[in-house]
Amino acid sequence: MSGKTHQYAFFLGCIAPNRYPGIESAAIKTSRNLGIELLPLKGASCCPAPGAFGSIDLKVWYAMAARNLVLAEQMNTDIALICNGCYKSIWEVNHKLKHHDELRDDVNEVLKEIDMEFKGTINVRHLAEIYYDEKICGVAKLADSITTPLKGVKIAVHYGCHLLKPRKEREFEAEGVGDTENPMWMEELVAALGAEPVQYRNKMQCCGAGGGVRGYDIAHALDITNEKLINMSEVGADAITEVCPFCQLQFDRGQIEIGEKFGVEWAIPVLHYNELLGLAQGMSPQDLALDLHGISCEPFLNKLR
């Protein structure tokens, strides 16, 4: 295992590269320290957003996701990604097209117009779940890569929805990842950084943003977010971590919006797991562009020192 480099086509999605570029930068650098090489997936687009596109026409969703998959097939490389929403589109469409001939034929008819064909030759994985996979990285190796342990902070893990659910459709190569009611593997990943993961009520609840609800009824979406923030603050979380830039957006920008709309003030920093990992591997807040976050990460960073 040691010394061997695992290569993946890095599917970026939209929000990480275009709103939180620190996540993209950190993902590439921290993974390299773990023997995981993330290669550019040139010409990839939006996954496309499963809530918006799936709601309008699932067939378009299949075709658009398939185009992204074919780009990786052409590189003959499995995809790694850093967003739960992207995971739903890219993993699930890959899985569905591999198993349903009729869907695949429909999609290939469209792809033919742009000289592409979905063949079903690659796999799709979430980077967080690759980190947890003993066959590739594992918690011990992750802990070994840490140079600046994140001591003295309590972190609430938000798993998000679309990486794990629906459980019956998911198949993970990493062992111990599949539970959707009380998973603990991300807590293990957080503990490996030296931080203290905390358990809070209704941990598996949605951030509120998905399914187009953030755009359709922002107050409704924020009310869900607010409930999560109450539960997290109840157990004294110093920061929230997640593996989905859309959830990050909802928690980060959402706290400001909650202040504006509901008059409820929150200031809990929200960091993608790769940002946390970057800090623990010695990257500076500037290297991670934490200044782009809506909620200041300063109190969290100060607590670390």
Partner: peptide, 11 residues
């Protein structure tokens, strides 16, 4: 009349 969706424990 409802099947229990989930149980949460007050910590």
């Amino acid at each position: 009349r409802g099947r229990v969706a989930k149980i949460e424990e007050d910590p």
